[in-house]
């Protein structure tokens, strides 16, 4: 997750089965702590390390706990402008020298999946929608944190505007730097989840995800995609760049 040392995950074996198990656990009814030892999945995986299997099940269980703890009405703390971290750190799965840029006039936000009106959106269209700003704490899965100032279109407003199926499970995000992630619909509809177009009252600069980043202070950094190019609404588990390598999918704060 950090520019200075791209990770070579050892648990890559975790990847292929994760999606399947995740989906199965999502479908399963309420899971009590007592039933933990009975968690399925492990018995059916033949070529897999039993320890990895248990860890994966526990991550899925924790995802459910995180979803249960999450409240759409609970807001992240708002900080004064004086608390903003300067400079706000750049962070990606590659170093800053590999930042990709697009022509803002040519850029379009593509829509897919369970959305009525899939007409692509230009920056001009998005700027015409109501904007909202926030000074919130960005927390990285690595443990560091930084306070920044973002503004843009509330995702809930946008999803309603384009006629998205708000009962769908997932909102998936694709980025033109080949990053991708997905979030639960509850978090997508959280009032502080925004399609950020500005940073510190200026047009979002390339290092912070120009032209669009999805900012959600209720989730860790790897769930806050930059360089966004497409948004989809789906009931099929979409995974994510880091999530497929072993970070927990919910990634909530």
């Amino acid at each position: 997750m950090n520019g200075r040392k791209p990770y070579r995950p050892d648990l890559s074996a975790l990847q292929p089965e994760f999606r399947r198990i995740e989906r199965r656990l999502m479908l399963r009814g309420a899971l009590s702590l007592g039933a933990l030892s009975l968690l399925g999945g492990c018995g059916e995986l033949d070529s897999d390390d039993a320890v990895d299997c248990v860890l994966r099940d526990m991550l899925s269980f924790n995802d459910r706990v995180q979803a249960w703890l999450f409240s759409r009405n609970r807001l992240a703390r708002i900080f004064p402008a004086s608390a903003i971290t300067k400079p706000f750190p750049f962070n990606a799965y590659y170093p800053p020298s590999e930042i990709r840029t697009v022509d803002p006039a040519q850029w379009r936000l593509e829509l897919s999946g369970l959305i009525e009106n899939k007409k692509p959106w230009s920056l001009r269209d998005l700027r015409a929608l109501p904007q909202q700003s926030q000074i919130t704490r960005h927390i990285c899965v690595e443990g560091w944190s930084a306070i920044g100032s973002w503004s843009g279109v509330p995702l809930s407003l946008f999803l309603k505007r384009v006629g998205a199926d708000l009962r769908a499970k997932y909102v998936e995000v694709k980025c033109f730097d080949d990053y991708f992630t997905s979030i639960d619909m509850e978090t997508a509809l959280h009032p502080q989840t925004i399609l950020a177009l500005d940073y510190a009252d200026e047009t979002l600069p390339p290092e912070y995800g120009a032209p669009m980043k999805i900012r959600m202070p209720t989730k860790l950094g790897y769930k806050n995609p930059k360089y966004v190019s497409a948004i989809g609404v789906t009931n099929t588990y979409p995974g994510g760049y880091w999530e497929n390598q072993g970070y927990d999918w919910f990634g909530g704060s």
């Binding site: 990770y7 995950p9 860890l55 690595e142 072993g246 970070y247 927990d248």
Partner: peptide, 16 residues
Amino acid sequence: GGWLGGGIAWHFAAMW
């Protein structure tokens, strides 16, 4: 855990 993701997986399993 071998890497950060593995460490987190262990931490949040042993936690329970």
